[in-house]
Nucleic acid binder design. Structure first.
Length: 309
DNA sequence: ATGATTTGACCATA
DNA sequence: TATGGTCAAATCAT
């Protein structure tokens, strides 16, 4: 769509920042109000903690929205062209040659958005369980960041040419907060096969150890019992821990439900969502995701799903 | 045996 | 040139 020019997007993003600023202001007022009422009860304590996390997330969201105002736009390209199908062994030719397709190690043309997920305890790390199966393909220390960034791509990248990927990084200032950045859309069968009601029905799809020991992970089933040594070894506890042990899915796959507001995140909180959508092409698939992302941006949708928190 | 993760190295971009 | 993103061999888990 030629319709969405750079300046349009700039305006939209700034509008987003403005909206977020208003929400932030409201949260501050709420926080102040709660401070007046004082409550030493647990509920008040919890509310204050929630408000605090909301505020910090909104701060981040504003920052991200504003910084993306200046993000350079990239021209539409043959989106999703598998620049190297399979386990591209000829690694070196792959990339240089693949540039012809307009895509190599960067995927600027793909839709991109981020969300922030808070967990309740440092052990309780399940933000990566977003309803899709991911395979980790890398991890890197980021300059100036306390925690490394992990890189994931869809498990079905090769079998179904699904080019969705995501990056997960623990927030510097808050070890309970994870920044998750998604790139691209799922074109694999997961999209249609997994739905939020999995949780509503008490169905649990996480690989989980019966004894609850800290070992398995949502996205890293093969990880050792490293606990926090590896910030990307996630284990998200379901609300209904009883029915979980067996899964309909093969071991080693992270299965849950809805993307982003996963029922399995019953003990996690999605504390912020930031859209940074590159409107470079409008395939049906992308349009579908746009709808979805717009839902995320919708306060009603967000509040509706807050019951999972 | 198969598939996932770790990790050092390579490469593109800013 | 520094940094971030990806690859792929080695290793580990199931």
């Amino acid at each position: 769509m030629e319709g969405s020019s750079s300046s349009d997007r700039y305006t939209e993003r700034c509008a987003l920042a403005t909206e977020l600023a208003q929400v932030l202001d409201a949260v501050r007022q709420l926080e102040a109000h709660m401070g007046v009422k004082g409550g030493s009860d647990d509920g008040g304590e919890r509310c204050r903690a929630l408000v605090s996390s909301m505020r910090s997330s909104i701060d981040r969201s504003i920052h991200i929205a504003m910084s993306s105002c200046c993000a350079p736009e990239s021209p539409p390209s043959a989106e999703g062209s598998p620049r190297s199908g399979g386990s591209d062994q000829a690694a070196d030719s792959r990339c240089r040659g693949a540039n012809a397709a307009g895509q190599c190690k960067k995927r600027k043309a793909l839709p991109k958005w981020s969300t922030q997920v808070r967990v309740n305890s440092v052990q309780d790390v399940g933000p990566l369980d977003d309803g899709f199966s991911w395979r980790k393909y890398g991890q890197k220390d980021i300059l100036g960041a306390k925690y490394p960034r992990a890189y994931f791509r869809c498990t079905y990248r090769h079998t179904q040419s699904c080019h969705a990927s995501k990056q997960v990084q623990r927030a510097d200032g808050d070890p309970l907060l994870f920044d998750v950045v998604y790139h691209g859309n799922h074109t694999c069968a997961q999209r249609s096969s997994q739905r939020p009601r999995h949780a509503a029905s008490g169905e649990h799809s996480q690989p989980q150890t019966a004894d609850g020991q800290e070992r398995s992970s949502i996205v890293s089933p093969g990880l050792k019992a490293e606990g926090l040594e590896n910030p990307f070894s996630f284990q998200c506890k379901p609300a209904d821990a009883g029915s979980a042990a067996s899964s309909d899915f093969p071991a080693g796959y992270a299965i849950t439900a809805s993307p982003f507001v996963s029922p399995a995140m019953s003990e996690c909180q999605v504390v912020g969502n930031v859209l940074d959508v590159e409107l470079t092409s409008t395939t049906d698939s992308q349009m579908a995701d746009m709808d979805f992302m717009l839902q995320l941006a919708d306060p009603d949708y967000f509040l509706d799903n807050s019951r999972y928190f």
